[in-house]
Nucleic acid binder design. Structure first.
Lengths: 206, 206
DNA sequence: ATTTACCCTTAAACTACCTTAAGCGTATTT
DNA sequence: AAATACGCTTAAGGTAGTTTAAGGGTAAAT
């Protein structure tokens, strides 16, 4: 009964372990660094379809996904959603532009599954960057990885057709592909759900 | 006559000043840090259309543009070029994925103007990251900025049509727009030169 | 100085992908 | 348990952008 660990907000008993494990892929944190981090993150339980960022608001948190899955998307003038990214377990999600500039975001971040997250506010993250050089190091590497991923995606969007992009998505993110509805995948690929359905029909008939 | 400062390679007399000025936008380098950097960069003069990276080779250098302009692009199976990015004065250009993984690149980096660059090799950059925390800091911030820029571009490619994208490009990069041929801009926008020409015709007739 | 390569444009035929609409099955909410 | 919203599919008609081809202008290479 997780109700027992809930207070009147959506905060839950803090377990930072997954984040520490995650950092072991980079430069692992010392005990002291862990303590500095622990006092500066907040753990939250998020319901399906709950938004942790809405268009018109400033993105106040850098979010680490412990459990569940999120999508970040923008809405165009015809009211179509366009998925910029997904984030499942052990991944980050944030509108970095809004977070640092403190300007209102044009994006939404929404849970596609019931989720548990760790959040850091800007002042706390800056504190860590200033006082723990290892955070500069780790986040430099993390940002480099994210940048490479994003650049590959951009190139693929230019040079491959929808069928190719879908095929490659299935290969590259099999776990995401199996836990997300096709509508969400279509939006990520930059096509309509109807067209994805057609592609799927053609593929399976082969 | 710059011939006097050239040796048998394309190296020229080292002037690192523009890079130091550039770092003043972040955490400026001390004299000692400047010395460490200076011994680890190589300055080169690059001719128009000369390539500093070709598909099938490992990207060995992190490149800072002192003068001139470069494009990075991929070629699809129909032999069409797709411009991923441009870099003019005081900007970086590198296939980050290939640079760090040391796997062969799928990209080309080519000078679109006669250029002067500073290049750092991987072992030297890693040396700087390890020995000068300020480099971790500066490149973390640089990567964050690059990531934000790229993410905005991806979103725009999904949510705006070619006309919009072209209009926004002219606004956002007026200097690039005036020094690049339209064929290169079309490739960056993800459309054919013919279609860009049509868009331009429609715009100017208004 | 001449040649060659590149750049821009126009236009007609073509295609990948979108729009709209409708029907059906299955989660989710009440 | 019923109602509602969501997800997937099919299909017809529409549009943004491509392809191919051709001509003329300008910059680069020899």
């Amino acid at each position: 009964m997780y109700r027992h660990q809930r207070n009147h907000t959506n905060k839950v008993k803090l377990t930072i372990q997954p984040l520490l494990e995650y950092f072991k892929n980079y430069r692992p944190l010392s005990e002291e660094e862990t303590n500095l981090l622990t006092t500066r993150v907040t753990q939250r339980q998020i319901k399906r379809r709950q938004m942790i960022l809405q268009e018109g608001f400033v993105c106040k948190h850098y979010t680490f996904v412990e459990k569940g899955c999120f999508k970040m998307y923008g809405i165009d003038e015809k009211n179509n959603e366009h998925n910029i990214s997904f984030a499942a377990e052990n991944d980050w999600i944030v509108d970095l532009g809004s977070f640092y500039s403190e300007k209102t975001s044009k994006l939404f971040i929404e849970a596609v599954e019931p989720s548990v997250i760790l959040q850091i506010e800007k002042r706390d993250l800056l504190f860590l960057f200033v006082n723990v050089p290892k955070f500069d190091r780790n986040f430099r590497v993390i940002m480099e990885e994210k940048f490479i991923e994003l650049q590959n995606r951009l190139l693929q969007n230019f040079s491959a057709n929808a069928n190719q992009r879908y095929t490659d998505f299935l290969e590259q993110y099999p776990k995401l592909a199996s836990r997300l509805p096709n509508t969400q995948i279509a939006s990520y690929l930059g096509i309509t759900p109807e067209f994805l359905s057609k592609i799927r029909g053609e593929k399976s008939s082969k």
